[in-house]
Amino acid sequence: MINSQTYNFHSSDLSHEREKEIARSFMGRIEWEMIVIAFTQFFVWCLTWYLVVSSIIPLWLGFFISLISTSFAYLPSHAGQHGHLSGKYKNLEWVNFVVGQISLIPLARSHELLKVLHMKHHAHTNDPEKDPDYFHTHVDSWFEAAMRIHNQGSDERIEKMVNDYSDKDPEFKKSIDRGSQVQFFIVLMQMVTAFFFPLETLFLWWLPLKITTSYLGIVFSREPHRGLGIGRHSDTRFWRNGIPRFLNHSMQIHIMHHMYPKICHHDEPKAIEALRPFMIAKNMPGAENIPEKISFNSLT
């Protein structure tokens, strides 16, 4: 693996081939960290339910624990959507779906549904006609991003987008149909749970998932993309917000993910250090502010 120590920053070879060669050196491994996060957060969430229902801990404490654990629910699915959980091993591709779906239960979402829409987001980032995330990324305020992301399922513009993709791509339609069935089943489970444990479902499931989804809309979607146009080297920015990157799930370096989505989330700091000269040379948004060292830098 190439890193900032072994790669000469002052090399004059900033060709696309060299860039790809460096990027490839960070690809292909199984991102075991995400598998650990997926099962840990799901276990904590289940344990919190047990402790609250058994009256061992109060509901308000359960709410805060569930809120924190649920905020870790999306990234393992996201890693699965990009195949990071199976790495280069084709026979392990099922791990992406299984771990991704288990991780998403606290968020009450279908892994497959999110995956097909997320792939379209990558293929058409910031395109108002084709990017399903466009309507909560290109908004004027955090509040709008936090609110609009909840209406994705009922937004007519996104519905039209999904219908257009479904007409053109039968595989996309199949994934949407399968994902919708899983989504329907999870929502049905929420209804049943709410009937038997109403306040617990509100405070341990519904509210944490709504707050986390708003957080995702702001930090994962709007901040890296707002106001930017179309183009692989211009659709995502490097940004800071005064909060250590570990508390933002490292979304400040989301620019790396859009440049090479096959690089695992936990390898992005090393990759961005190695690819920084290429990013600056390509005038990628905010690239000039990327520090030389990121691995142990909190990026406040």
């Binding site: 209804m191 709410a194 109403p198 306040l199 479902t201 509100l202």
Partner: peptide, 18 residues
């Protein structure tokens, strides 16, 4: 509508009783 009837109906009911 069904979701709100069951989900929020149950929550409103529990809230009022509590």
């Amino acid at each position: 509508v069904l979701f709100a009837f069951v989900f929020f109906g149950s929550i409103f009911n529990a809230g009022v009783i509590y």
